[in-house]
């Protein structure tokens, strides 16, 4: 009998100790906010364009964590969908956009002699990529522009264009090799001394 009592007491004691430990650590090491939201947010392109139907990338990240579909971010493209699917361990859906191709990177460009300096575009830009002052010509800081499109609509004289980024030597990249014609081995030409690859 006493053995049972001892066992029960020991177990109770252990339970108490662990309970206290867990309780303490849950307070001491409390994680602020929802870390999953942060992780999802980190995968979104931060264009803040609102094309997902949310007022920014973070709200969409929150919505995703709360069960919204992961394929609503056109600027992120399919690669973002896949990264999200990877993170959340769900099925990667095809991108939910009219033209589901990889988006072409664009930046805003203000036709400066047409700008009337109304500052409307500055107020619309989520990343402060537009420079200007009232009644002065405005211009876009290309390196900061995320290409979100939000400044185009508010401009009263429609002087903002979204132009594709020109490739330079530094951002040029090798294209994918064209898929070769799959031949059977006997079709191969004989006698090749040296091949140049690349």
């Amino acid at each position: 009998m006493s053995a049972v009592l001892v066992a029960v007491l020991v177990l109770l004691g252990l339970g108490l100790v662990f309970g206290i430990l867990l309780g303490y650590s849950s307070i001491r090491f409390k994680v602020e906010g929802n870390p999953l939201v942060d992780q999802v947010d980190a995968l979104l392109p931060q264009t803040q364009c609102g094309q997902c139907g949310h007022p920014g990338c973070r709200p969409y990240a929150e919505a995703i964590v709360n069960g919204e579909a992961i394929n609503k971010c056109p600027p992120g493209g399919q690669s973002t969908v896949e990264a999200l699917a990877d993170l959340l361990d769900v099925e990667a859906l095809p991108l939910d956009a009219e033209d589901a191709e990889e988006p072409i990177k664009k930046v805003a460009y203000i036709r400066e002699d047409e700008c009337i300096g109304c500052t409307k575009c500055i107020q619309a830009c989520p990343v402060d990529a537009i420079l200007g002052a009232a009644k002065q010509m405005h211009t876009v800081i290309v390196s900061e522009c995320t290409g979100c499109d939000l400044c185009v609509e508010p401009c009263p004289v429609d002087c903002i264009d979204m132009l594709p980024l020109e490739p330079t030597l530094n951002n040029w990249q090798w294209p994918a090799p064209k898929p070769g014609i799959e031949l059977i081995a006997t079709d191969r030409q004989p006698g090749i001394a040296l091949e140049i690859k690349g």
């Binding site: 947010d41 980190a42 979104l44 392109p45 931060q46 264009t47 803040q48 920014g56 990338c57 690669s79 989520p126 990343v127 402060d128 990529a129 900061e144 995320t146 951002n171 990249q173 090798w174 294209p175 994918a176 090799p177 690349g198």
Partner: peptide
């Protein structure tokens, strides 16, 4: 390999840009 490297570099670059944009936002 060149293609894959370029793609990975691009993705890294975009990630950096996104982080930057988030900071600015």
């Amino acid at each position: 390999y060149r293609f894959a490297k370029a793609e990975i570099r691009k993705e890294d670059d975009e990630q950096r840009k996104a982080d930057h944009a988030r900071l600015r936002f």
